[in-house]
Design a protein around this nucleic acid. Structure first.
Lengths: 205, 205
DNA sequence: CAAATATAATGAACAGTGTTTATTGACAAT
DNA sequence: ATTGTCAATAAACACTGTTCATTATATTTG
């Protein structure tokens, strides 16, 4: 009798139900305005129930963070049909910016908020999602080197440098620090800056 | 009789008292664990009193953010004795990283947290502190162009690009996203990456 | 100087937060 | 049919930012 299996399935279903409700609230109301009680209300359960499926809010945030990574990785992997490695790298950057701008709350969860990382830390695990996304970038860079674009380059350092730039650019935008320019050309500025960075990569690596 | 003047002085003193207590708590306990009640306790006043001097927590955060900018601007300006503009730019970068690593809570306040920007937005003012710091970078870049280092370069775009990189690098570090490498060479990696970025600037601009 | 007024500070209250726990109710096993 | 297991709950705890009627103090006026 597969009754313990059914229980496990039920449990997984419940975890998913909570996760989906959390995501929806996140995307509609934003992180700061989404509470455990809100999530509980949305799925018509009591607040305490959520703690039977997730040990605390950080664990829930981490689960959400994992789902966000799956989505981003999927979108970033769609450049694999571009044969020229450098063009692929450039397009990956464009998609990275696009993802961040279109999913600000999720981007925050993935790369800024401390909650998910704290959950990871107390479980004493390594940040696999980050590592996987990072290796995606390393892979393209390796291809660029093979194709003769870059030379004498430590792949890991190059990847960190490129990621730092991309990350900084989108965070400046997402955290409203670009409104100091006081015109409404923020996205235009991002594109101009990215164009410059691409030029830097092309001519210096 | 300068009694309204004295009142104004008293008021300014009280604002400072609150601000200093807030800063101390920020630096010792971190932002997330510092509440209005904590600050009130520290200066031995009731919580409500703080609202007689700051309209809300965001205004207090903004005041703190301003003080942090004064400190950073001071530290970044100490490179002015370096005559070679490019060397000055490079040293400024080093100091930027140093400031961020040594003042993580303040850096967060200045460039990541939404609170201070919300306060600014509801007062409908421009982000002067950010603009001032940005123009510090623009100034060095302009000097680099004059000295023949860079050419055919839009100063504003270049400044945004360099800032994006610096910002991204330190945020990756401060938000614990560098622990995916799982060794303890985070700061070393930052230095390696920055060295690469400097090389990129030298050879491509 | 005394009375009236202005104002600084207070503590309680409000509505919210994450989290824990004793109690209840339904299902499974004996 | 009774026992045991376990999911779900409501209530409570200790917080949070913020507001407000009340009190105490200081200043101005009669």
């Amino acid at each position: 009798m597969g009754i313990v299996e059914r229980k496990e399935r039920d449990r997984e279903e419940m975890r998913d139900l909570i996760l989906e409700a959390a995501r929806t609230l996140f995307l509609t109301k934003g992180y700061e305005k989404t509470s455990i009680r809100n999530i509980a209300d949305a799925i018509e359960y009591s607040p305490g129930t959520i703690y039977l499926y997730y040990k605390d809010k950080n664990e829930l945030l981490f689960a959400l963070h994992e789902a966000a990574f799956r989505k981003m990785t999927l979108e970033l992997s769609q450049v694999n049909d571009i044969s020229d490695p450098f063009a692929r790298l450039v397009e990956m950057g464009h998609r990275y910016i696009k993802y961040a701008v279109e999913n600000p709350e999720m981007y925050d969860l993935m790369f800024v908020m401390k909650g998910p990382m704290q959950d990871l830390a107390c479980r004493d695990e390594v940040w696999e999602d980050g590592l996987k996304a990072f290796s995606l970038l390393e892979y393209v860079i390796t291809d660029c080197i093979k194709a003769g674009y870059f030379k004498e380059l430590d792949v890991e350092t190059a990847a960190l440098t490129i990621w730092s730039y991309m990350h900084g650019l989108v965070i400046i935008f997402l955290k409203d620090r670009m409104k100091m320019f006081n015109d409404n050309r923020e996205k235009e500025r991002m594109q101009q800056s990215y164009a410059l960075f691409v030029k830097m990569m092309r001519s210096s690596f």
